[in-house]
Write a protein that binds this DNA or RNA. Sequence first.
DNA 1: CACACGTGGGA
DNA 2: TTCCCAAGTGT
Length: 361
Amino acid sequence: MDNKHLPAADRLLHWYDRHHRHLPWRISPAAARRGAHPDPYHIWMSEVMLQQTTVAAVKAYFAKFTERWPSVMDLAAAPTEDVMAAWAGLGYYARARNLKKCAEAVAFEHGGIFPDTEAGLRALPGIGDYTAAAVAAIAFNRQAAVMDGNVERVISRLYAIDAPLPGSKPLMKARVAELTPADRPGDFAQAMMDLGATICTPKRPTCALCPFNALCVALATDEPERFPVKAPKKAKPIRLGAAFIAVDREGRILLRKRVESGLLGGMTEVPTTGWTARADGVTDISAAPFAADWQPAGSISHVFTHFELRLSIFRVGPIDPPPDHHGFWVPVTELDGQALPTVMKKAIAAAIPTAFPTSNR
DNA sequence: CACACGTGGGA
DNA sequence: TTCCCAAGTGT
């Protein structure tokens, strides 16, 4: 049947019923149409994990978290250190700290029940405009305008919006609100994101298969890949430093806990110098955790969001632990239980190649 | 409003 | 290799 006359939302939902992705935290659109709701705990956790993170990377973490902490009450009762260690490797560690805070707020201030409105959700730690709308729409079928990076791409092409992000966000949000149906807002939100992830992709979109192709202004008048227009990005500076891998006679490595705020906040680290912006190549080992016969053990490079870090690695041991230092000693065979971010695993692996036998390279 | 804040994968 | 990202939030 010719459905060109259908409103945009109906075209999208028709496409979604046939081509939706199957994801562990979802229920099927067929079940949703029968009035079923997904577990708000699962939707919330998946949305937080998916912030700036790929579906492929999230799947294993989602399985691990929901198996270990099946309910928000379980997560609220968990030691923060366990949550940080379980999150290690996923990045943006403020999300893990706020995940725990949010679980505590839901457990102890809301009786273990997630708020079912956008405003109620928005007041919780780690839940911003996007996540509040997404959980309200997907978990509670509220008519909330859900806009993430996928939706921005779809909308900017559908209307050929020339104004650059992020300034054009309010305009695009208004367009999303116009399109969002009262009937199936949760499926509509997931459909927009599936469309952006599988059809309306950043490069080489598959417009021939798009339910919006007859409506898309960018496709009709321009080059869809040109949208969304974004402000130019800044160059990434390089910072230098040194990391110190000390091993004692019992095969333990010296670790420290980073301060709660800022980069890698609350995570575990090996002792390092400060990370300076100087580019003279001088390595300052005077900041070693203690005086010892530190031996060069190569170097690593790691790219953060806003700078690249190059660390010279130094190693010493087996030694007797000196009495005067702060930190704690952990067997090299038990590092998996530590909240070690990827950059720290790289530093350790450079000095002790056998430290992480399961990882590649 | 601009910037801080991780990581691994694809082109 | 280099660049660009991928379901943003907090300050």
